[in-house]
Design a binder for these strands. Structure first.
Length: 320
DNA sequence: AAGTAGGGACTAAGAGGGGT
DNA sequence: ACCCCTCTTAGTCCCTACTT
């Protein structure tokens, strides 16, 4: 289960934060203060390991990789998530950072968010990849980014009832230009020559039509039931009532959109991609909306350098 | 089983804007 | 007015997921 606290000190050293909250719209802009260094990385890596632990155990069991450090198997180079290609790491990175920001910063509504576990075990493609790689090292098949599955955090009241959850959509792009932003948020342009329009199948479309009770809650409950049924008994029971077909318990939803990646060449410091203090007009869902923009340099290297060293200390040949 | 849509990375060429 | 850099767009590639 996910147990490591967010590395707040390292985040403050790494990123400058500008936040605003107006009515039910929150915006958090994060800009790189300095390149990621060994100290920051050392604080962040345990959080990533914690976030991936459940899926790692799942997939390694599936692939029948031993989890014991003394076993020679652990040194194999086809572990989750280390063995995944960059394109997949980017998707995972966005979701882990969504969780880290949710726990580390104040979001719209000032709720106390809880992440019992990340839902990565439902990323079947990654599991299949790890399994295959263990049996056919020649295999080079690329895993694409995660699709559809959301990052989920919950708010639990004093009686152990789930009263609210936040569901996140994380997008990574190498450079955030105006056209890149439009394509991500509104979908690609289609139509006849000279008459192109956005097809309106971007993030706004997905967020606006998102279910009030998404599959992620069901997946979260299933994992809790599988791993810690007694510790999370009240949450499991509460989710049961929320997920019921008939007379379900009410639950509030907060939408989270994370845009992460590199700045455009012409970007001025402290400028945001989406409006800062006014709710974007494309947002129609009427719920609470939290936008996070994370602008960093050399994103590919940052992501790779983190994912390269996850669980490295467990490898017998890694040294310390 | 085959065709089509979809998403993301990459590339080249043309458009546009800013600086001098 | 000109040059150069950046952005935009269109096209390609690769692979998945959905449809028929």
């Amino acid at each position: 289960m996910h147990s490591v606290r967010p590395p707040k000190k390292a985040l403050l050293k790494w990123l400058d934060d500008y936040s605003s909250e107006v009515d039910n719209y929150g915006h958090l802009l994060l800009e790189q203060l300095q390149a990621i260094d060994d100290e920051i990385k050392a604080s962040i890596v345990p959080y990533f390991e914690s976030a991936h632990l459940d899926a790692r155990e799942c997939f390694h069991r599936l692939a029948r990789i031993s989890l014991h450090p003394d076993d020679g198997d652990i040194g194999c180079d086809c572990q989750y998530p280390n063995a995944l290609p960059l394109i997949t790491r980017k998707g995972l990175f966005g979701e882990v950072m969504s969780g880290m920001f949710t726990e580390a910063y104040e979001f719209v509504g000032k709720h106390e968010w809880l992440i019992p576990v990340f839902l990565f075990r439902n990323h079947e493609d990654a599991g299949q990849y790890i399994y295959t790689l263990n049996r056919d090292p020649e295999r080079k098949r690329e895993v694409l980014g995660r699709k559809g599955d959301d990052f989920i955090a919950i708010v639990v009241d004093k009686d152990g009832k789930v009263v609210r959850f936040i569901a996140g959509e994380a997008k990574w792009r190498g450079t955030w230009n105006a056209s890149t932003l439009a394509t991500v948020m509104l979908g690609p342009k289609i139509g006849p020559e000279g008459d192109k329009v956005y097809n309106n199948r971007g993030v706004w479309f997905e967020v606006n039509r998102a279910l009030n009770v998404p599959l992620g809650l069901e997946q979260l409950q299933a994992i809790l039931l599988d791993r810690e049924p007694s510790k999370f008994a009240s949450i499991i029971a509460s989710l049961d009532r929320i997920l019921a077909h008939r007379n379900p318990d009410p639950v509030e939803r907060t939408d989270l959109i994370l845009l992460a990646g590199g700045a455009s060449k012409k970007r001025k410091p402290q400028t945001s991609l989406l409006p800062w203090k006014t709710i974007p007009e494309e947002y129609k869902a009427g719920r609470d909306l939290q936008v996070v923009e994370m602008i960093i340099e050399d994103g590919d290297e940052v992501i790779n350098s983190i994912y390269d060293v996850l669980w490295a200390k467990d490898k017998p040949d890694a040294g310390i």
